[in-house]
């Protein structure tokens, strides 16, 4: 990080240590130093110095498909959370939710880039000479049937209780996977997981704390929380279904079989529920279609609508520069 607000603190401490000219000429150094565009956008590259060759013993196509699954989860969930921007219960929560969306977006970019590098045939073709980078081709030029995210990530937003319940469920599940993924034989996945574990520990903390607050706040907040959990629970089971790609990368020491973390994630969630004084919902898992679910590209109706909105500008300018 080169633009952290802590720099500001030092200046603020010195009081009027701010030169007039600093602000007046916003163009000094334009195009010379682009490390300062906006907060949160120039995260240190966690892949710096990381060996990007595909390890032996794994089919690059499996590695790519696996990265696409994890990357789509993060991208689609980030997109949903960012819909909260300017609509949260208070400014502090608006900022917190944007932080979570930004973290997930950062994770998805790395995962999609890894996917494209491992299997270029996955990347949609655009007119020759199009400057659109691989991560954006994957994000903006695939149909919903090609997305591999779990359905939890895509379901439409509800109220704030639904948001924190969904973030708690997602981050509890994903953190358990990423903790194991840190020791992946693929150096890139391992580096992404190391970064993600720090971020998602915070997300889980944030959401767990709010679940507790709503459960033990008012009658209304408790009712809303229970309704939200009840509505989300059918999506819990899918998180621990093993897709053949996941089985294959797990066997190769590259990825994690989600079924392996089911107990651990369940225990953590039950601890939060116990502290909150609420019961785990009892609804059964949402069925697929002919056994196919999010990981197979079989989604809810909500995903194609989300993508229609998300992809519209990018598709309008297939040769555009951004």
């Amino acid at each position: 990080m080169t633009n952290e607000p802590s720099i500001h603190v030092d200046h603020d401490e010195a009081g009027a240590n701010i030169e007039h000219g600093d602000h007046e000429n916003a163009y000094s150094g334009l195009l010379v130093n682009d490390a300062h565009w906006a907060f949160g956008t120039d995260f240190e590259d966690p892949l710096a110095g990381v060996d990007t060759t595909v390890p032996s013993g794994v089919d690059p196509k499996d590695l790519a498909a696996y990265c696409l699954m994890l990357g789509d989860d993060a991208l689609v969930f980030s997109q949903r959370i960012s819909e909260w921007c300017s609509s949260a219960p208070d400014l502090e929560e608006d900022i917190a939710l944007a932080n979570i969306a930004l973290d997930l977006l950062g994770q998805s970019r790395l995962l999609l880039a890894r996917s494209a590098a491992a299997d270029p045939s996955l990347v949609p073709q655009l007119p020759e000479g199009s400057p659109v980078p691989d991560e954006d081709r994957l994000a903006f030029f695939r149909e919903d049937l090609a997305f591999r995210n779990v359905r939890l990530a895509e379901v439409p937003n509800g109220d704030f209780a639904e948001a924190v319940a969904k973030i708690l469920i997602y981050s509890t599940w994903r953190l358990a996977i990423f903790e194991r993924l840190q020791s992946s034989r693929d150096s890139v996945l391992s580096a992404i997981a190391v970064k993600g574990v720090k971020e998602m520990s915070y997300h889980r903390d944030f959401a767990g704390r709010w679940v507790l607050t709503l459960a033990r706040g008012t009658e209304e907040s408790k009712t809303r929380l229970l309704t939200a959990l009840e509505g989300l629970w059918p999506l819990w089971g899918e998180l621990f279904e093993t897709h053949p790609v996941e089985a294959s990368v797990a066997a190769a020491g590259i990825g994690v079989d989600p079924a392996e973390v089911a107990d651990e994630a369940g225990v953590i969630l039950d601890q939060v529920f116990a502290a909150a004084g609420i019961e785990r919902p009892e609804r059964g898992a949402l069925a697929g279609v002919r056994g196919e679910r999010g990981r197979d590209g079989l989604h809810t109706e909500a995903l194609s609508k989300m993508l229609a909105d998300m992809q519209v500008v990018a598709r309008q300018y297939p040769e555009g520069q951004w």
Binding site: P5, F39, D90
Partner: peptide, 21 residues
């Protein structure tokens, strides 16, 4: 603003140290 001390720590981290520092 925060409802209690712990929430205040969360908010302070989100608002004043924005990300990861």
């Amino acid at each position: 603003h925060a409802a209690d001390d712990q929430m205040a720590i969360h908010h302070a981290r989100d608002v004043y140290t924005r990300r990861n520092e």
